[in-house]
């Protein structure tokens, strides 16, 4: 396996007295597509939120492209990272949220342009051109001057993806991106994710409840249970020939709750 783009080394996370993650070890290869499944409260979302620097690990080290994310080296020792270091390393990561989190005071074009201009220092023309291309790619080339409140949930989520993609991350995180959508709008969003996945270059981590979808696009499926990676492997191994009873009961509960 090539040098991993992301590496978790014995990562723990507690919120107060509640231990959410109890030692995560995980290597993610460049361009690898990973689906994180598991019951709610199992810590799936926390795993990716730590990678996006939205939650700080309680202990352990996360590396992005060989650099520690939450730590920096000082005289041979790892010390907690400052904001400058976080900004340097975080630039490789992009994220799409369950509730879109578009900026409501900006048009969707400005939503996409704000980071290229103010983070990467691109010229307005360049950022605009790239944003338009990206919005066309997600099928919203005709909505450039609309505000988020004028879009449907599926459209909002596609804008959110364009906004993240325009920053050219090496790793994209998807946090239950279809959970807040009306059922009939889920398809259009999954379609875009599928397109992105097929282009290949980016590593992707999807926290999802869409088992069919996970099977289609993931190289590896991870089953998280009570703060540990309980089972992992190819989609066939995990979703069809699951070893543990916990996973089998999780999957069966799932099938019964969403008949297809």
């Amino acid at each position: 396996m090539a040098e991993p783009i992301v590496r978790y080394k014995d990562v723990h996370k507690s919120f107060g007295d509640v231990q959410v993650l109890k030692g995560i070890d995980l290597d993610i290869a460049p361009a690898e597509k990973i689906a994180l499944i598991g019951p709610s409260g199992s810590g799936k979302t926390t795993i990716i939120r730590m990678l996006m620097t939205l939650e700080e690990p309680t202990s352990g080290v996360i590396e992005v492209d060989g650099r520690p994310l939450w730590h920096m080296e000082k005289e041979g020792e790892l010390v907690p990272a400052n904001e400058k270091h976080l900004r340097e390393v975080r630039g490789d990561i992009g994220m799409v949220f369950q509730h879109f989190n578009l900026f409501p005071h900006m048009t969707i074009l400005d939503n996409c342009m704000v980071a290229p201009v103010h983070v990467k220092g691109e010229s307005k023309e360049e950022a605009k051109q790239r944003s338009i291309e990206m919005l066309e790619k997600v099928g919203l080339g005709d909505k450039l001057d609309n505000y988020p409140s004028q879009l449907s949930g599926g459209q909002k989520q596609r804008v959110a993806m364009a906004r993240a993609l325009v920053m050219r991350p090496k790793v994209m995180l998807f946090d239950e991106v279809t959970s807040a959508l009306d059922p009939e709008l889920v398809g259009e969003v999954l379609e875009v994710i599928r397109d992105i996945a097929q282009e290949g270059e980016m590593a992707m981590i999807l926290v999802t409840h869409e088992m069919e979808f996970a099977r289609d696009i993931a190289d590896r499926v991870l089953f998280l249970d009570e703060g540990t990676i309980a089972e992992q492997g190819s989609p066939e191994e995990v979703l069809e020939n699951s070893k543990s009873e916990r996973l089998q009961s999780f999957l069966s509960r799932f099938r019964s709750s969403s008949p297809s």
């Binding site: 996006m52 975080r90 630039g91």
Partner: peptide, 26 residues
Amino acid sequence: DKGQWEASTALNLSTRKKWTKIILPQ
């Protein structure tokens, strides 16, 4: 909304730009 802060972090905006471009205008 808290999500606005998180989205600004995810886009790697500096603390200053978070305030001036995202938080204060809202």
